[in-house]
């Protein structure tokens, strides 16, 4: 081996030593792991839901006669829409409440309906609940009409849905209403 070849070999080995990139490998592995962890978090964040609740309502069913002796029939808990069922109408300016008879057969009478005006454009749910409670108690003591726990809410069309949902939630939270039926309007 000539001196020049030995020198060239030494030069190439020095070059190789100086360009030693053995630390690239851990960096690349760590970066890949970091990328996978970040992607995993991002995907999970977009796919996992937050906490959600539900405000329930019902659509009334037409009752049909069924076999009273069967066990199934005895376990079904039903509420019936009657003329004494409370109705709450939500308009742009006020709540109007009364029983179903007051909005159907005796709609012309003014003495069987009560109103709670909105305060600064916002529904006054607290006073509505209080007035409904007084009304229910009053008619229970006068006419011996017990509250079934069923109410009908009829909002006007232009009422925003958040207000409708809040009203349903407040009525159910008042303990006087176990089920609320949403009505679409009067015909």
């Amino acid at each position: 081996m000539t001196a020049s070849m030995t020198l060239q070999s030494k030069i190439s080995k020095t070059k190789k030593r100086l360009s030693d990139t053995s630390w690239y490998l851990p960096i690349i592995i760590l970066a890949s792991i970091g990328l996978m962890v970040t992607l995993s978090f991002l995907l999970r964040a977009t796919s996992m839901a937050g906490k959600y609740g539900i405000v329930t309502s019902e659509i009334p069913l037409v009752s049909v006669p069924f076999d009273q002796s069967s066990e199934v029939g005895n376990t079904i808990n039903t509420l019936t829409v009657e003329t004494t069922t409370p109705v709450i109408v939500l308009t742009k300016n006020r709540f109007i409440f009364g029983d179903l008879d007051a909005f159907t057969t005796n709609i012309d009478s003014l003495r069987n309906k009560f109103s709670v005006s909105h305060v600064d454009g916002a529904p006054d749910l607290l006073n509505l609940i209080k007035d409904i409670e007084k009304w229910l108690f009053g008619r229970a003591s006068r006419s011996n009409i017990s509250s079934q726990g069923l109410g009908i809410l009829i909002p006007q069309g232009e009422i925003p849905t958040p207000i409708v949902i809040q009203t349903i939630q407040s009525l159910k939270a008042s303990k006087h209403f176990e089920k609320i039926v949403l009505g679409s309007g009067f015909q």
């Binding site: 937050g50 906490k51 539900i54 329930t56 019902e58 659509i59």
Partner: peptide, 15 residues
């Protein structure tokens, strides 16, 4: 919902 004979429904809210 009524036409599809679904009588029980609810509105979703965010807690």
């Amino acid at each position: 919902l009524a036409k599809a004979n679904i009588s029980r429904y609810g509105f979703e809210t965010r807690i």
